[in-house]
Amino acid sequence: MLHCGASWGNLPSSWTADANGPSSKYEPSRTRGKGSRRPINGFLNLEGRIGCHEVRTRCVLFTGEYEHTIDAKHRVAIPSEIRSRLDPECHGVAFYLAPGTDASLWLWPEKTFEKLASTSEQSLLPDEDLAEFEELLYSQSAWVEPDKSGRIRIPERLLTLAGLESNVVILGVKDHLELRDPVAWSRRRDEKLAKQSEIVMRARRAQDRQRNHGGD
């Protein structure tokens, strides 16, 4: 996970890559400047200092689709490929399951979710729209801990909210996972692939707006 506002393409200059750790693997980049390095298998070791906080974390990029079943006790297994890449010290031992958009559930490593929550500005008189969002998000979220088989139990209210029954598709979406109904996702995915060029252009414009806003 990338924390403290860092991103894959824009790391603070004070951070250095540690290529000697047991979990860091590097190879020369074919697309970047001479001597640059890029992560293999989605991992990157970062070490640096931001303010008074020492940062040392392993970045994990969630990708892919995984089809699983939900058992009679509302349990679903987190894919072993994903579990094996998480570091308890960096990401925690559990997850937060939160209502997502368009009939989905979002699954965040607990320390990532808590860090995102801590970045929200605190106020006795919060913005009305933000207060409404946070009331819904946090009241409906659930802390879930995998059992020895790597399964989490989904609360019934969240199953109903997402329209999930016995089958589920788990999507890797950068820094979190999404749980969706497989049939609905197949239809949604096909619709988005048909508009891929348009979606890419909108994403580029959104990135430009973020960069311009950051320079203000």
Score class of each variant (00 low, 15 high):
residue 38 R to Q: 14
residue 38 R to H: 12
residue 39 P to S: 12
residue 39 P to C: 08
residue 40 I to L: 11
residue 41 N to A: 04
residue 41 N to W: 00
residue 41 N to T: 10
residue 41 N to F: 02
residue 42 G to A: 01
residue 43 F to R: 13
residue 45 N to R: 05
residue 46 L to A: 08
residue 47 E to V: 15
residue 47 E to K: 12
residue 48 G to N: 07
residue 50 I to V: 14
residue 50 I to S: 04
residue 50 I to G: 01
residue 51 G to A: 00
residue 51 G to D: 06
residue 51 G to T: 07
residue 52 C to M: 12
residue 52 C to L: 12
residue 53 H to K: 09
residue 54 E to H: 11
residue 55 V to L: 12
residue 55 V to F: 14
residue 55 V to K: 11
residue 56 R to G: 08
residue 56 R to Q: 10
residue 57 T to N: 14
residue 57 T to F: 05
residue 58 R to Y: 04
residue 58 R to D: 10
residue 59 C to V: 15
residue 60 V to C: 08
residue 61 L to G: 00
residue 62 F to R: 00
residue 62 F to G: 01
residue 62 F to N: 04
residue 64 G to K: 04
residue 65 E to G: 03
residue 66 Y to K: 06
residue 67 E to G: 01
residue 67 E to M: 01
residue 68 H to A: 15
residue 69 T to K: 13
residue 70 I to M: 05
residue 70 I to T: 06
residue 73 K to L: 11
residue 74 H to I: 04
residue 75 R to H: 03
residue 75 R to D: 13
residue 76 V to T: 11
residue 76 V to F: 09
residue 77 A to S: 10
residue 77 A to Y: 00
residue 77 A to T: 08
residue 77 A to I: 03
residue 78 I to E: 06
residue 79 P to C: 09
residue 81 E to C: 00
residue 81 E to K: 01
residue 81 E to V: 02
residue 81 E to H: 07
residue 81 E to S: 02
residue 82 I to E: 08
residue 83 R to G: 09
residue 83 R to L: 04
residue 83 R to M: 10
residue 84 S to A: 10
residue 86 L to Y: 13
residue 88 P to N: 00
residue 89 E to V: 13
residue 90 C to F: 04
residue 90 C to Q: 09
residue 91 H to D: 14
residue 91 H to R: 03
residue 93 V to G: 06
residue 95 F to A: 02
residue 95 F to I: 09
residue 95 F to V: 05
residue 95 F to T: 04
residue 95 F to E: 07
residue 95 F to L: 02
residue 96 Y to N: 09
residue 96 Y to Q: 09
residue 96 Y to R: 02
residue 97 L to F: 09
residue 97 L to K: 02
residue 97 L to D: 07
residue 98 A to R: 03
residue 98 A to C: 08
residue 98 A to W: 07
residue 99 P to T: 15
residue 99 P to V: 15
residue 100 G to P: 01
residue 102 D to S: 13
residue 103 A to R: 15
residue 103 A to V: 08
residue 104 S to C: 02
residue 105 L to W: 10
residue 107 L to S: 05
residue 107 L to N: 04
residue 108 W to C: 05
residue 110 E to M: 05
residue 110 E to D: 10
residue 111 K to N: 06
residue 111 K to L: 12
residue 111 K to T: 09
residue 113 F to K: 00
residue 114 E to W: 05
residue 114 E to Q: 07
residue 114 E to P: 01
residue 114 E to G: 05
residue 114 E to D: 15
residue 115 K to P: 00
residue 117 A to R: 11
residue 117 A to T: 11
residue 117 A to H: 08
residue 117 A to E: 13
residue 118 S to I: 00
residue 119 T to D: 15
residue 120 S to E: 09
residue 120 S to P: 01
residue 120 S to H: 09
residue 122 Q to F: 11
residue 126 P to Y: 00
residue 127 D to Y: 05
residue 127 D to F: 02
residue 127 D to Q: 08
residue 127 D to T: 13
residue 128 E to R: 06
residue 128 E to W: 00
residue 128 E to V: 07
residue 128 E to P: 03
residue 129 D to A: 01
residue 129 D to M: 03
residue 130 L to R: 12
residue 130 L to F: 04
residue 130 L to T: 15
residue 131 A to Y: 03
residue 132 E to D: 13
residue 133 F to T: 14
residue 133 F to S: 13
residue 134 E to W: 04
residue 134 E to N: 07
residue 136 L to F: 11
residue 137 L to K: 01
residue 137 L to A: 06
residue 137 L to C: 03
